[in-house]
Design a protein around this nucleic acid. Structure first.
Lengths: 350, 350
DNA sequence: CGAGCGCGTGTGACCGGTCACGATAGCGTG
DNA sequence: CACGCTATCGTGACCGGTCACACGCGCTCG
């Protein structure tokens, strides 16, 4: 490592960045006073404070994050635990967390969960047990995230972002987007258009019962419509495409609710290849409102979700937990259906 | 912070996680020996090592990352500096870095650059100057990234991911995807199909001269084709859409190369709304091969880029720099054109 | 047979902050 | 005028690792 050079070259540039003690010496106070200024302690006289601040400014001093974390016991940081970083919902949530963290002067780390195997789950949980991880937000939209949440050591300050409320109690703070009512809304839109029922191509869900899928089922049951078998498609567009081909072959299918916009794309492509017009013959609705969906042909009817808001709320909650404060009120923008071109009344029977 | 409880409740669970000295005491050695085992020092007798390892295992000891970083002078971590986390190229590169880092046992941090203003650039550079940032990878596809790269303190171990070689020398290790030849390839494909020339809707570029745009120009000039004015569209699909409307109005436009797939989507939508068939009347090619592009209608001809490989290579290079090792050889998958449905020969003049 | 060397290990200081406590000064009060 | 209190500031120890160096031991070699 770099050590302070005692004699060094004559006009050598400083090697080691200034420490709190260097600043103290320059300002003519003790290191503790500098520390107090850094932490905004009220018991520092105004002129002392300005002197210290001037020294800090002049020397270009910046507190060492590792040292601070070591002394404090936990870092002023947030680390996001997630099974994926590219999928729109995950990436947007991460973005929301990052923005809020940066605004608050927190460092941000990312730890992805390789799989939901016991080993990978444990490794992720161990990772965030380290104090340098700071506060933790686990994105628990899927089984891997949910397992990590359960495996977390009790004393790591963590909150979870989940898909829908009503999940079994975990003893942890959770913040959710209400996808269930949103999915119901989308399904009702299709029903109101005159469709007999709505098929569902699903993403993997944490428990298969409380999120998008549940909302779809709710709406169908409330309307007394038949509830077709769910078509699972993973996160994979290819799987959605395959599912779409099967659906396309069935003349009774006139409306499809997809677990997310990517799946909707796969389904729509399959429909296209089979010559089934969207929305003329079958209506398709997605979920998430990814940026491109408004530009598709036809533009996709979908449900807009406030993932970024979810991320920000999670950050606030995680920090509150880190500080031992009461949980802040959360106010998220409710999901909303945005109707575009991919839905229409079913073709009237000839 | 949590302090060790001296007397504490009778059967109280341990509060503080075990430290290196606790392990040493349990194994009957000194803390330094434990440290040596942790770092794989060869000068530890085999049976001593196994004893220490057993104690570590039994106590569930995990080294404190902050303490290690403080002692070492730099953290075993990599932090990614980027202007964006959602755009496909950026997100994929980040993903590649994360995978490699996780495999190597490195922590990963993210720091996004708010804008390319002097202030934001400086803040980002300051952030990674902290030793806890570890090695640094700056994604310099855009002006903000390039500015941060230039603003970096000389002694922070950093490498940059850039769009194409041939950039002005920065004195920094840079790793690039050769987009220039890739763009030329795509342009030549269109020319070979019989198009008189190719229009270009561009993403922002770091210097407007060495990346995608330059490759396009190269190919046009080599073929003696006219070089139309570049249509800049930012990162914004709406801007691409607007550009597409203008292009659609010009009957001379028969082929469009877009700076990325998102822009291609905007352009294609505009063409669609104007009733200009793709690829019948105009051919469109994108860049990046985002996951959905194969499922669009028509499926997009585009250039596949190995962003994940770029990310992995950047990580390796950054770590080598952190360790003071020689730069490793990099081998990236070259970009390749994937021809799908959105390109065809121009309609023959009636 | 003693000096020299290499192996395996332990001790002390240090990284750069934080906490707990003590010291000093200035002030008001009985 | 002695006492106590508060505002302000400084000293020492500590967080949990790392480095530099010293030490004891057994071996080889002159």
């Amino acid at each position: 490592m770099i050590r302070k050079t005692a004699g060094g070259p004559p006009a050598a540039a400083r090697r080691t960045p200034p420490s709190i003690r260097d600043v103290a010496a320059a300002a003519g106070v003790s290191y503790q006073t500098v520390s107090r200024v850094l932490n905004g302690s009220p018991s520092v006289r105004a002129d002392t404070r300005t002197a210290v601040l001037a020294a800090i400014e002049e020397m270009g001093f910046r507190p060492n994050r590792s040292a601070r974390a070591l002394g404090l016991g936990r870092a002023r940081a947030v680390t996001v635990v997630t099974a994926d970083t590219m999928l729109y919902g995950y990436a947007s949530t991460l973005q929301g967390i990052e923005e809020a963290a940066r605004a608050a002067g927190f460092a941000v780390g990312v730890r992805v969960i390789e799989s939901d195997s016991a080993d990978d789950v444990r490794q992720a949980a161990d990772y965030v047990a380290d104090p340098s991880a700071g506060a933790v937000v686990v994105i628990a939209f899927d089984p891997a995230g949910a397992k990590v949440l359960a495996a977390l050591d009790d004393d790591v300050p963590a909150v979870a972002a989940i898909e829908a409320s009503g999940r079994r109690d975990t003893g942890r703070v959770v913040i959710c987007l209400d996808e269930r009512v949103a999915a119901a809304q989308a399904t009702e839109h299709l029903l109101a258009l005159g469709h007999r029922t709505v098929h569902h191509v699903a993403i993997p869900s944490e428990d298969g019962g409380s999120g998008r899928q549940a909302g779809w089922r709710d709406a169908l049951e409330r309307a007394g419509a038949p509830v077709p078998a769910v078509v699972p498609a993973g996160w994979d567009m290819a799987a959605a495409y395959a599912a779409g081909r099967r659906l396309a072959a069935d003349p009774l299918v006139t409306a499809v609710l997809c677990g997310n916009d990517d799946l909707a794309l796969g389904v729509r492509r399959a429909l296209y290849e089979q010559g089934r017009d969207v929305p003329g013959e079958v209506s398709v609705v997605g979920f998430d409102d990814i940026p491109g969906s408004a530009y598709w042909t036809p533009a996709l009817t979908t449900v807009r979700m406030d993932f970024a808001g979810l991320g920000r709320a999670c950050f606030e909650a995680a920090v509150a937990q880190l500080a031992g404060d009461a949980q802040p009120e959360v106010s998220l923008i409710a999901p909303c259906l945005v109707v575009r071109e991919s839905t229409a009344p079913p073709r009237t029977e000839p």
